[in-house]
Design a binder for these strands. Structure first.
Length: 255
DNA sequence: ATGGCTATGTAGCATAGA
């Protein structure tokens, strides 16, 4: 089973890239973030024509998440239960017996901002919910844009990013608490090239200069981690015309 | 160098991203 996550930064603009990528990579399920589209305007037909099914939770302009899968998504649920949030950041579905959580963690803007406080509150609610899910779902995968670079090796310039949003100690601690629930960061289950990143700023030719961060992650419960044979970041879509600023991350699980 | 791109909503720029 091939699982993937990709922040597309507008599903409308990136739909051609996504359809090409589905055809070339043949994933079984893809978690999409920043669709930026209302549910009534979701491009369902185009994706279904490519042989995939969809579950989505979106809004105008901002946020928005979707799960695209070969087989029918079952037991679909949007949001974090018990956490009141107008921002559409989570959708969950069972696919081929795997409970798949697609998450778009708040960016946080700056460590001294209200949005940063919202990010930390959001992460606390997310952790509490995943702790309960872990008990009932042995095959649990949490994919998405975490907006957290877990360690300095995930940052092109750790000194410049020290204590900045995406890299601050409270955010990294929140990420470690998720790992503390028993999840594995699938990317780090394997040897990886240095300067492996999943996001590069649009400005300053950051991609060409390899100035990025690794903030998109695939967390796997122990039972799934034991089945994981590979995890990679596919930077090819970042080279295209009018790319998303994020690259997809792919994990392969043995059947 | 505190900018530098890009997308959206909306018709000039403001907001947000990371």
């Amino acid at each position: 089973m091939r699982l993937a996550t990709w922040n597309v930064n507008s599903l409308k603009v990136r739909l051609p890239h996504l359809l090409d990528w589905l055809a070339s990579q043949q994933p079984d399920a893809v978690c999409i973030q920043e669709t930026k589209v209302e549910d009534t305007k979701f491009p369902r037909e185009e994706i279904e024509a490519a042989g995939y099914q969809v579950a989505f939770s979106g809004q105008k302009t901002y946020n928005g998440v979707a799960i695209i899968s070969r087989s029918a998504p079952e037991h679909v649920h949007a949001g974090i239960p018990g956490f009141d949030d107008e921002q559409k950041r989570v959708i969950t579905a069972t696919i081929q017996g795997v409970r798949v959580v697609c998450a778009y963690v708040p960016n946080g803007q700056a460590v001294d901002s209200d949005k940063y406080q919202y990010k930390l509150r959001w992460l606390a609610a997310f952790e509490a919910w995943l702790a309960t899910e872990r008990r009932s779902q042995p095959r649990l995968a949490v994919l998405g844009d975490y907006n957290i670079a877990p360690a300095d090796e995930d940052v092109h310039d750790p000194a410049a990013w020290k204590d900045q949003v995406l890299c601050s100690a409270p955010e990294r601690a929140a990420f470690q608490r998720l790992l503390g629930l028993g999840f594995k960061d699938s990317f780090r289950l394997f040897p990886q090239a240095e300067k492996s990143f999943s996001w590069w700023d649009y400005r300053m030719m950051a991609f060409r200069r390899k100035m990025g961060l690794r903030i998109d992650h695939i967390l796997l419960s122990p039972q799934l981690a034991a089945r994981c044979g590979a995890c990679q970041i596919d930077i090819e879509p970042r080279r295209l015309e009018r790319p998303s600023d994020h690259a997809p991350v792919i994990a392969d699980l043995a059947d």
